[in-house]
């Protein structure tokens, strides 16, 4: 094997993923929920994704577990392109990537006991005939901090935090490598949020998990993530490690977004950057850089050319013309 160490460590590689939703009539055009997004996730890291609501972060997460089929692009998990899998291969792939949902009360079937819910993954994959399934479920339940007596309960008899723990246990049942946390703590009380985040952190260490952590809560993402991706209108505009992003943000959108985090220490707080206007409609995004309509630093080039994600610092990628000196407007680019 002549692969570099780094390549070995890549768990997931997203390659130009596009998810477009067609409108009802042909005239409407399609909503570009995720538009040409590429990134990699290393084994054992937590990749956080932030962005305003409607920027496509949930759609991206759902695509990674194939709840949503990508319109275009490839998703490699362990070198295997999961974007085009079907039937039994897809079912097999399900064991590798699981998802934790936002609403703990909606993600558990109200008519089944916790035990039946946790039994489901084993039944689906034909593992329920094995002797130690019961023991396995009991182990799972304890792993997520519940007791075995909870197994005979129904979802409505549990609290929100407990339900979310059941959701986590269900996601863990198939021993996945990647877990997509789709706003996994936003529906919980703040105190419970911390507990669940700690649990996730603990599980990550114990089971060697990799998280794709979606949230609109910047503090939460900051707390858990090793690397953070910032999304705006279906595009990844900045990817960097947590430390790098904390030190210096390149993209004007990231700057504005992160300036919105409330600071305890008043002296340390930076000037809050207020963005003007609304997020444009993803069915009819602005030309060039999608952010140019609201960007305080936009120039002529931004209106015409779409910026590419370039590496401005080691491991720090930005899609912004301010830092891209190589490309420039050509004659042919100017349309209309």
């Amino acid at each position: 094997m002549s692969k570099t160490n780094e390549a070995d460590n890549v768990l997931l590689k997203a390659d130009h993923i596009k998810v477009h939703f067609k409108g009802k009539s042909k005239k409407d055009g399609s909503v570009k929920a995720v538009d040409d997004v590429s990134f990699t996730i290393m084994r054992g890291e937590t990749f956080g994704v932030v962005g305003e609501s409607g920027c496509g972060k949930s759609t991206l997460g759902r695509t990674l577990v194939r709840l949503q089929d990508p319109t275009e692009g490839h998703i490699y998990i362990d070198e295997c392109d999961i974007a085009s899998l079907k039937g039994s291969e897809l079912k097999e792939m399900r064991k590798k990537a699981q998802i934790i949902f936002q609403d703990p009360s909606a993600c558990l079937n109200p008519r089944r006991t916790i035990k039946q819910i946790l039994m489901e993954p084993y039944e689906i994959h034909g593992l329920d005939k094995e002797k130690d399934v019961e023991a396995e479920i009991e182990r799972l339940v304890q792993l997520v901090g519940l007791d075995t007596y909870h197994l005979s309960r129904y979802p409505h008899e549990l609290s929100g935090g407990q339900k979310q723990r059941v959701g986590i246990a269900r996601a863990l049942a198939l021993k996945p490598e990647l877990i997509v946390c789709d706003e996994a703590v936003s529906a919980l009380d703040v105190s419970v949020q911390a507990q669940v985040l700690n649990l996730l952190e603990e599980l990550k260490k114990k089971l060697n998990l990799t998280y794709f952590f979606i949230s609109h809560n910047l503090n939460v993402v900051y707390q858990v993530s090793d690397r953070v991706g910032v999304m705006y209108l279906g595009k990844m505009v900045e990817i960097a490690t947590y430390n790098k992003l904390y030190e210096k943000r390149y993209h004007p959108y990231t700057e504005a977004l992160l300036s919105a985090i409330p600071q305890v220490d008043d002296s340390a707080s930076t000037e809050r950057i207020h963005l003007k206007g609304e997020v444009p409609s993803p069915s009819n995004p602005p030309s060039g850089c999608h952010f140019h309509t609201r960007c305080p630093k936009a120039c002529e080039k931004c209106r015409i050319l779409e910026p590419k994600l370039i590496e401005v610092d080691e491991g720090h990628f930005v899609a912004c013309h301010l830092y891209d000196t190589e490309t420039d407007i050509k004659e042919g680019d100017i349309t209309e």
Partner: peptide, 11 residues
Amino acid sequence: NEYVEAAEVLG
């Protein structure tokens, strides 16, 4: 409901 999607993700 999300439990339907949860079942789908489980295969």
